[in-house]
Write a protein that binds this DNA or RNA. Structure first.
Length: 259
DNA sequence: AAACATAGCAACCGCATTTCC
DNA sequence: GGGAAATGCGGTTGCTATGTT
């Protein structure tokens, strides 16, 4: 294939776009669309190459672009998908309406990469703690549905939702609760005393009952170094924490007197 | 206040893939 | 079916804002 001459050789402009250029591009696309990027700049009267116009439109001028900080939910989705897909930014962007691959890529390099590095360090350090909760990711990440459409299950605050499994881990007793628990962190707002969850979990949820100080946490198991706290600062026990998360995820008030 | 370092991000580059003729 | 053109994608660069010394 013969490579098209670069912008400079054609006397085309490079570098940051001006407001005037943006306006011209927007006006042209609004009127004529962008069926042919290569022809567009000439037709619109822009001294830019088609590639530059496309990039500017896709990454900045599109009306459906979502600007501003990434929400916790978006950050988690990026982390989950990156763990599964790697640097396939466009594939990740496809799961985040309004976010561009370029924006996600930048955000990853400037924010999330550090968090992953820190988390790995933390997981390593966590092996010295007692009774860490662990998760086993089973299948590929999926876009989490964070709407509160779950029905509040019947439960007793004294009842343990965990059942023993032959593997030595404790498993959450039914699929609906697993699903709710998996999505718990997306409901957290200011209710959870924890950092946003960053690990890849999307299958059954397990809680270790047999890990001790000497055991190293290895993938696919993950440390959960967080918890839920009462207003007085006391940490909830495991059962209470579980039901609290289920309850809030299902639409219950975080301040419900039951907790 | 100035110099320097770092972070954040828009934009570019070159290769890969898809579409068109 | 094959080559050229167009588009898409991911890595990288470089400018600007902000923080630190």
């Amino acid at each position: 294939m013969v490579r098209a001459p670069c912008c400079e050789k054609l006397g085309l402009k490079k570098g940051p776009w001006t407001t005037e250029e943006d306006e011209i591009l927007i006006a042209y696309i609004n009127k004529h669309g962008h069926s042919n990027w290569r022809a567009l700049p000439k037709l619109a009267g822009l001294l830019r190459c088609g590639k530059s116009c496309r990039l500017r439109w896709i990454n900045y001028l599109r009306p459906d672009i979502k600007r501003g900080n990434f929400t916790l939910e978006e950050q988690d989705i990026v982390l989950h998908l990156h763990e599964k897909l790697g640097n396939r930014w466009s594939a990740i962007a496809a799961q985040l309406p309004g976010r561009t691959d370029n924006e996600i890529k930048n955000f990853w390099h400037t924010h999330l990469k550090k968090r992953v590095t820190n988390k790995q360090t933390h997981v390593h350090a966590k092996k010295k703690s007692t009774d860490p909760a662990v998760f086993e990711p089973k299948s590929q990440p999926q876009k989490l549905d964070c709407s509160n459409h779950y029905e509040i299950p019947s439960f007793s605050l004294d009842h343990s939702p965990f059942t023993d499994s032959p593997t030595g881990y404790k498993e959450i007793e039914n699929e609906q609760n697993v699903e709710i628990f998996e999505a718990f962190h997306h409901t957290c707002g200011g209710h959870w005393a924890e950092e946003p969850w960053t690990d890849n979990f999307n299958g059954s949820l397990f809680k270790s009952s047999e890990m001790n100080d000497e055991e190293e946490i290895q993938p696919p198991y993950r440390a959960m170094d967080s918890g839920c706290y009462y207003n007085n600062g006391t940490k909830m026990d495991d059962n209470m924490e579980f039901w609290y998360r289920v309850f809030v995820k299902a639409g219950g008030s975080p301040n419900d007197p039951a907790f």
